[in-house]
Design a protein around this nucleic acid. Structure first.
Length: 726
DNA sequence: GCAAGGTC
């Protein structure tokens, strides 16, 4: 008897194989794909693995105006970029999973996992005959759980499969079709291509950012006063120490009241009214889940969440750290802390900290859990030859892992109130009495202040009294780390996709800025447009509505085709509205896009110079917004940045380009003598349109161009022309 | 060209 077990990813395949039989043999297909062979209960078992989704939805007919008829096709054919690695896995499963007597679906027990395994069985193994398929249900990848799941296999839950399929189809219907309609509105209104997109997750995310912009725009600052005094004092060592004390009212919005305090206290001494000492603790941080690691790496190193995720994945595939796409903040004892620490101790720096660990190893676990994976931790294998950035992330993971086992840091706080003419002031100082974990986590500043040598009843001289006039501030813009946290809170997207979603918003030019994410006019207009024609898409409503509908499939109150039909109807209405208002929508979106690409003023006609991209030449260039009435055009090298600085001679922007970076005026002829009209040399006939070919000078030297430009875009190098003439 | 979701 031959049995094939299909798993979601190679690491879980290995764990499952070894759980079923410690003597499972590891094999490799086509030098790349690992699989396992074992014997159990007189069965020959082959354990193969997918790598996440191997199949993607794709339209039956790509030429359709709207995509409602979809089918599953190999991911490496559909998303050519980035899924190439799945090809070998599909081949391996096809070869190894053929004609078995029974099949076991052993992917993660959630909707996506169920669909991953179902599609692998159906399209790679050619099995959708449920009678041969059984399902393992496990929540951790421990030997005990896996054996139990194998021995008590259940039927494949087709409702769960249908829920997964419906989720994919609905996301496709709404996302792809509405994106297409928006792009079409631009091309029909302005005859320009603009890559636009909308979706169940990216659009509400953009909406969150737009809302924050609106809060900032609508914010009315209010003036207030902070009253402070500087009083003389000494530290316990007798060193002179000026103490800054604040009026207990804090923000004083009433100017008269602020003035009253100032006149009353002017020139008066302060009396120490009350001193109280208290102790406090700061617990160690919790183990990293992906969001936590991304947030910390952003705050400590300024790494984008995407960058951190890529590095964490590399560290994981190299075997140095554990699986990164986890939401767990817990480290189970079964990981074998002692063994990991003893291996890490081969590194001298780590050893200094590890040697001080308490004998009882109990991590300060956080609340968040994950069914499939523990919190991110080092495996114990010490890396060699990591790049600087990879090493930073690795060290961060190790030090966090170490620090969660230490005791709390302890502080002593001195809270003091002073009296100046009946007005109460106060100050607070905090000093460390026990560093605890903070000594072993080098990414936090320890604020250790000195206590002044004072006692109740002391009279202190006031050196200075001042009223600081301030304004209330609008809420801060999001940065990438705080946005990820907000998405987690609202349960938008998943841990594995949030960083990609944010990247996408940058890529579409909806947003700019790193430390403070700002929304471009295009982003604002997208939300404007979509909230007019499909309000659901801009809010979390669509995600919630999906969840409810999908839940219906899961518990048998509706069917997959009902849910899909309903979605189709809704999308059709939205598409109708967009088409009806296509000109207006397209114009608005394109013009707002141009706005964020304005780099200067056209010297010929006074219009805007706009950075644009040509699909024909696959290069960016700068053209006038009044094209075709004005044909001013500048070519720019690949990777050009526009600086804020303007050229002193002509006022055009200064650009930087090349490696090493060099700076120059946008106009390559700037500063050259152009008073004598330069007659370009005629060198022959254009092979494409028959007009004159001219020898022109460009940024990188001479080239041949057609006099019919820009209608004819024939161009070649001087050498190429010489070759042809020979 | 377009989504969101898995994964190397």
């Amino acid at each position: 008897m031959h049995e094939v077990i299909v798993c979601e990813k190679p690491t879980s395949a290995e764990k499952i194989a070894k759980a079923l039989s410690p003597s499972a043999k590891k094999k490799v297909y086509n030098k790349k794909v690992k699989y396992w062979e074992l014997k159990k209960d007189s069965k020959d078992i082959t354990v193969v693995s997918a790598v996440g989704h191997l199949y993607s939805l794709t339209p039956d007919n790509p030429k359709d105006r709207v995509y409602f008829d979809l089918h599953w096709a190999p991911a490496y054919e559909v998303n050519k970029k980035g899924s190439g690695f799945t090809k070998d896995y599909v081949r391996a499963i096809k070869k190894l999973g053929k004609n078995a007597d029974s099949y076991v679906h052993a992917c993660d027990y959630d909707t996506e996992g169920t669909l991953i395994g179902y599609n692998a069985l159906k399209y790679a193994c050619g099995q959708d005959n449920l009678s041969k398929i059984s399902r393992m249900k496990f929540s951790t990848l421990t030997k005990k759980d896996l054996l139990e799941a194998y021995d008590n296999r259940i039927d494949l839950d087709m409702n769960q499969v249908d829920t997964g399929i419906a989720r994919h189809v609905l996301d496709y219907y709404f996302g792809v079709n509405i994106s297409k309609a928006l792009m079409k509105s631009v091309s029909s209104a302005k005859h320009r291509f603009l890559k636009l997109s909308a979706g169940r997750v990216q659009t509400p995310t953009l909406s969150i950012l737009v809302e924050r912009e609106n809060e900032i725009k609508d914010f009315v600052p209010e003036p207030y006063w902070l009253i402070k005094a500087l009083v003389e004092g000494r530290t316990e060592d007798g060193v002179e120490d000026h103490i800054e004390v604040d009026h207990v009212d804090g923000k004083i919005f009433d100017k008269a009241r602020a003035e009253e305090i100032m006149t009353k206290c002017q020139g008066k001494d302060a009396k120490v009214h009350k001193i109280s000492l208290s102790n406090s603790k700061t617990q160690p941080p919790v183990p990293f889940n992906l969001g936590g690691l991304q947030s910390e790496a952003y705050n400590v190193f300024g790494f984008s969440p995407k960058k951190t995720q890529v590095i964490a994945q590399n560290l994981y595939t190299s075997g140095y750290t554990s699986y990164p796409r986890t939401s767990s903040q817990k480290l189970p004892e079964s990981l074998g802390f002692k063994e990991i620490f003893s291996q890490l101790s081969h590194d001298g720096e780590f050893k200094k900290h590890i040697s001080q660990l308490p004998s009882k190893l109990r991590p300060n676990n956080g609340k968040k859990e994950d069914a499939a994976h523990p919190a991110i931790h080092p495996t114990g294998i010490l890396p060699q030859g990591l790049s600087r950035d990879d090493k930073k992330i690795y060290d961060l993971i190790v030090y966090r892992f170490i620090s969660v086992f230490f005791e709390a840091a302890k502080f002593e706080t001195m809270s003091t109130t002073l009296d100046i003419e009946g007005e109460k002031f106060r100050f607070r100082r905090r000093r460390v009495t026990h560093k605890g974990w903070m000594e072993h986590y080098p990414y936090r500043n320890i604020d250790n202040e000195e206590f002044p040598d004072i006692k109740e009843g002391d009279i202190l001289k006031v050196l200075k009294l001042l009223a600081d006039e301030k304004e209330t501030k609008p809420p801060a813009r999001y940065n990438q780390a705080s946005l990820i946290k907000e998405l987690e809170k609202r349960e938008l997207g998943t841990k594995a996709t949030r960083a990609d979603i944010i990247d996408k918003l940058y890529d579409r030019k909806y947003i700019t800025g790193d430390k403070q994410i700002e929304v471009n006019q295009l982003g604002t207009n997208m939300i404007d447009t979509l909230s007019t024609y499909c309000n659901d898409l801009t809010s979390e409503e669509l995600t919630r509505a999906f969840e409810n509908k999908l839940e219906g499939i899961d518990n048998n109150t509706s069917t997959r085709s009902e849910v899909i039909e309903e979605g189709k109807k809704e999308v059709k209405i939205i598409l109708g509205d967009i088409t009806k208002n296509s000109k207006e929508i397209g114009t608005k979106l394109y013009e707002s896009y141009q706005e964020s690409n304005i780099v200067g003023t056209c010297p010929t006609c006074g219009g805007n110079l706009v950075k644009r991209y040509s699909f024909k030449t696959k290069a960016s260039f700068v053209g006038c917004s009044n094209y075709p009435d004005c044909t001013t055009i500048y070519s720019i090298p690949k990777g050009t940045n526009f600086l804020k600085k303007k050229c002193e001679k002509c006022g055009l922007p200064i650009i930087s380009f090349g490696k090493p970076r060099q700076r120059a005026c946008l106009d390559p002829n700037c500063g050259k003598d152009t008073t004598k009209p330069h007659q370009p040399e005629k060198v022959g006939e254009c092979p494409e349109c028959g007009k004159q070919l001219l020898k022109r000078s460009g940024r990188y030297g001479d080239f041949i161009g057609c006099s019919g430009f820009p209608k004819c875009r024939f161009t070649c190098s001087v050498e190429e022309l010489e070759q042809k003439l020979k």
